[in-house]
Design a protein around this nucleic acid. Structure first.
Length: 555
DNA sequence: ACTTCCGAGCTT
DNA sequence: CCTAAAGCTCGGAAGT
């Protein structure tokens, strides 16, 4: 059973199912949905989960499954070679009717709330939003039958839609964040809190000592150009003021600059201003952007949720009586490559929790120790997936190719396809964008002069590196989307998914349910492996879970 | 005063 | 730095 739900202008909500159409005010809408969800748990169809589901969450309603028209449209457009076109309902409907598709509105998370509420549907006057959604849904059903593996693509659309539910729920629940611990940490490292725009005491002192180290001339350590010039006056020529460049310079200002930059980074990125803006009532509530990266990885908007420095993990603490269950898919990408390529020997190596140690044995047994071999095996595998050639990488990759030819040729075929300008696809059907017209013009024909020819080869290789990585990273995103969808269903009430970062989840749970949560994670990984890569997939995906009080204790 | 770009650094 | 790429955010600096 499918039920379309949508918001019309002026806070009126519409429900459309086989028995007809109902227009309801918000309160009646939520009440109706609650009743139907309890009775039938239908597949709700949303023009955009991101825009509508927060309304339901605020009223205390959680739904079990849905179809997100906007996210599915994006996946379909990519699969059809039309990536980058607007994907919201008005655009999808317009394309269906041969009209010019309007550009997507900014996401609900970014929009000004007042503007967002008063905006129209974006559809022509007289076209009902639920009726437009019904047309687009039927169209998507048709188009999903025409992709290369329709059953995989349906799973992808379902998992992506469920991911959107997770993202909205994670924002509503929030990541437990102890502002008092954060404030104490800042005070310890930077000195007492100062008003916005001012340098804390510790930074003021360091800036003064830096100027002294440069002979008393004022040097603003926040300005890279000024730092480069200051070293120039000392007779030291450096290409940039990056930390790794500074570390190689022998000068009394260097350790001060490095300390200043570390503390200034903490202050500007995650200082008191960040705390005031993003943490309230013990929760950090970022906006998560499902499919915000072309590979299908999530992005975040506001608060830098995917860039939280490790030093601040101590601030992530379970509520009294609760625990955090932190689980990380170990060496996910090489295992994904094993599953994609069907490389038997790599699949056998995946039986070990420490994949790189097993690779090292396969590559270097008898020739070097595990301590020497493991980091080289890791470089070899990462070079295969990322296209690296620097240093030893090329020779290590050649050895990896000897031992695991199917895995290495899988990514090399993806790279060659990219160099030819072809698109590549993930396991469940995410498709890479086509290269730009400028890229085609540059790489398309024979170039007269050698400089242009060299740039063309460079551009082709760069795009090949992108497609090489895409097949692995996007398939990993397939797997984690299915995992999120599965885990969401299995978590015992009232445990909540509160954080997701590419291959890692945090669940906030009452302490007595932590063991059940760990079991739910293990079951979800097993089911997601079979769903994503097939029931006979021989690859092992370890996802060790740790039950802790603070995120900092997880690894 | 405002916009745009760059350098830098954080995560995976 | 070391193996690659993408995305977010900040502050400084340059341009309008």
């Amino acid at each position: 059973m499918q039920v379309i739900v949508a918001r019309e202008d002026e806070g009126v909500f519409v429900v459309l199912d086989s028995s007809g159409r109902r227009a309801l005010p918000e309160a009646g809408f939520v009440e109706y949905l609650t009743r139907v969800e309890r009775a039938d748990a239908p597949r709700w169809v949303f023009p955009s989960v991101d825009r509508l589901y927060p309304v339901l969450l605020r009223a205390g309603l959680r739904i079990s499954r849905c179809h997100d028209l906007s996210l599915t449209e994006g996946l379909l457009l990519a699969a059809e070679g039309r990536a980058g076109q607007p994907k919201a309902l008005p655009a999808a409907w317009a394309r269906l009717h041969g009209l010019e598709p309007p550009p997507d509105e900014p996401s609900a998370a970014d929009a000004q709330p007042a503007l967002f509420e008063t905006r129209g549907s974006g559809l022509p006057a007289g076209v009902g939003v639920a009726e437009a959604a019904r047309e687009v849904l039927a169209d998507q059903d048709r188009r999903m039958k025409r992709v290369e593996h329709p059953e995989r693509f349906r799973l992808l659309a379902a998992a992506e839609s469920a991911s959107a539910l997770v993202a909205a729920e994670m924002r509503a629940d929030g990541l437990p964040w102890r502002a008092d611990v954060h404030d104490a940490l800042l005070t310890e490292l930077l000195g007492p809190r100062v008003p916005a725009g001012q340098r804390p005491k510790k930074l003021v002192e360091l800036a003064a000592r830096i100027s002294e180290a440069f002979g008393g001339k004022a040097v603003n350590p926040d300005s890279p150009q000024t730092i480069v010039r200051a070293f120039g006056r000392e007779g030291i020529s450096i290409p940039s003021a990056r930390a790794h460049v500074l570390r190689k310079v022998d000068h009394p200002a260097v350790p001060l600059l490095i300390e200043y930059r570390e503390l200034a980074r903490l202050h500007s990125a995650n200082g008191w201003a960040w705390l005031d803006e993003w943490v309230a009532e013990g929760r950090f509530r970022p906006a998560w952007v499902v499919g915000g990266v072309v590979s299908g990885r999530w992005a975040s908007s506001g608060g830098g949720a995917l860039q939280i420095p490790k030093t601040l993990r101590v601030c992530v603490r379970a509520d009294p009586g609760w625990k955090l269950v932190v689980a990380d898919a170990a060496q996910l990408e090489p295992r994904v490559l094993a599953a994609l390529s069907g490389d038997r020997r790599l699949a056998e190596a995946s039986a070990s929790t420490d994949l790189y140690a097993r690779l090292s044995e396969a590559m270097f047994a008898g020739t070097m120790s595990a301590e020497e071999g493991r980091p080289r095996a890791k470089i070899a595998m990462l070079s295969a997936m990322y296209g690296g050639t620097a240093g030893e990488a090329a020779s290590l990759l050649a050895l990896l190719r000897q031992r695991f030819p199917d895995a290495v040729s899988y990514v090399e075929h993806a790279a060659q396809a990219g160099e030819r300008g072809e698109r590549v696809r993930s396991r469940l059907g995410r498709v890479s964008p086509a290269p730009s017209e400028a890229w085609r013009a540059l790489t398309g024909g024979a170039n007269d002069d050698s400089a242009t020819e060299s740039r063309a080869r460079q551009a082709a290789r760069n795009w090949g590196r992108f497609t090489r990585n895409f097949v692995v990273q996007a398939s990993a995103a397939d797997f984690t989307a299915v995992l999120l969808a599965t885990l969401r269903r299995k978590l015992p009430e009232p445990a909540q998914l509160v954080f997701f970062q590419h291959d890692e989840v945090i669940v906030h749970t009452p302490g007595q349910l932590a063991a059940q949560v760990e079991a739910a994670i293990a079951e979800s990984v097993a089911e997601s492996t079979a769903l994503t890569f097939g029931p006979a997939c021989p690859v092992h995906f370890p996802m060790p879970a740790a039950t802790v009080t603070t995120y900092a204790d997880a690894k």
